[in-house]
Write a protein that binds this DNA or RNA. Structure first.
Lengths: 209, 209
DNA sequence: CTAACGTTTGTCCAACCGGTCAAAATTTTG
DNA sequence: CAAAATTTTGACCGGTTGGACAAACGTTAG
């Protein structure tokens, strides 16, 4: 048994990777409809018909990209576990999400683009796997609240707020850099963000007293 | 002196409004390149050549829309003022931003689309007016911190986090609704979000001791 | 009424875009 | 090496899209 996946030669493996890398660059910058096959082909260093030899349709590239993305994208949340100190767990989840925004901004923007357009291609996944996962983690968080380990709030909105604040640094990167200016908007901005978010999520804004 | 703006008849005023409303609907749902003049014309109840009589180019519609948007979009931040209790000021800023996400989600998505694509059309504004405004408000917030009215943190990232968390409910609305499900994802979700965000920004997640 | 002006429409065009196809070039295999 | 299989390319196609344009239609003022 070779499995149901199509058999692929070495060249196919390599060229497909090349195309996916190029497509990630182009799609994340211009959105699906804003990107052309020619752009992707050029970014991958090949001709359009050649690219279409490896992916029959533009949608196939996008779909493959999206499937891969979702796996790795939700990994940090999957790791949020019941073992260990709750506040530490949450803090490291926030940190990992922020690192992903820093290291994989294109993936974040690809995802944001898809959601902004109404998630036409991944709606079933949102209502299925994603909802299941979030519900599961919400239960874990609720347990922490009942045990008095963290303050009582809405676990779903807590997760949303972590997604929102961390992904903001990838999706709205140009705005963040423009507002921070040349000095504060340099490479240190992610460490500043990490420090700020840690304080926000742990202590809020009330002055200590 | 009539000013430098082109003289417009009553019909022009009305039709232009009609077109802008239709274009907001279409652009915010499909992005700039994902939208066609035909779509906008149909949504506005007129023919394509007729629409092009009022706006010579597709870009002109988008530009007009964007200029109007920016004025109203930053109004809540402009109102953040030094008079009144700092924590109350911040709380009401958050509430107002969340209300805007609820009441003007199309505007939020239009803006998000523009930023995601690298803000090609509004970059000067981000580096100019927006940066100036944010820097100004950051100074106000710093004053509050020096006076011990709120905890010490980075004011710029504080503003980013408010933008991120509130706009998330407009930009990622489909995801929010999908994850919350039919019951919790109903109209009450904005009130839940308001309650959660108030707690997050004021007290954080540490359990009360 | 009619001339001037503003509005609307049908037709058309050139550029672009996703995708096909057959033939040529290359690589793999016996 | 030679046949078979795979990869690459140039030419092409039909549909879409942004936009031009002139003619027709409607409105308003003298």
């Amino acid at each position: 048994m070779e499995g149901s996946a199509p058999r692929r030669t070495r060249i196919q493996q390599e060229k497909r990777e090349l195309i996916l890398e190029a497509a990630l660059e182009v799609f994340s910058a211009n959105g699906f409809r804003g990107s052309t096959i020619d752009q992707i082909a050029e970014a991958a260093g090949m001709s359009k018909p050649n690219l279409l030899y490896y992916f029959r349709r533009k949608e196939d590239i996008h779909e493959t990209l999206m499937q891969r993305l979702l796996d790795t994208w939700l990994a940090p949340l999957r790791e949020l576990d019941d073992i260990g100190d709750p506040l530490t767990e949450l803090r490291s989840y926030i940190r990992r999400k922020l690192e992903m925004a820093r290291d994989f901004p294109r993936e974040s923007r690809l995802f944001a683009n898809e959601i902004l357009q109404g998630a036409p291609r991944i709606m079933p996944m949102l209502e299925g796997d994603l909802k299941t996962l979030v519900d599961e983690k919400a239960t874990v968080i609720k347990g922490w609240m009942r045990a008095g380990k963290i303050a009582r709030t809405d676990p779903w909105h807590l997760i949303f707020s972590i997604w929102a604040t961390t992904q903001h640094y990838a999706d709205f990167d140009v705005q963040v850099r423009a507002v921070l200016g040349a000095d504060r908007g340099g490479n240190g901005r992610f460490e500043d963000a990490a420090r700020f978010l840690e304080q926000l999520f742990l202590d809020g804004l009330k002055p200590k007293g």
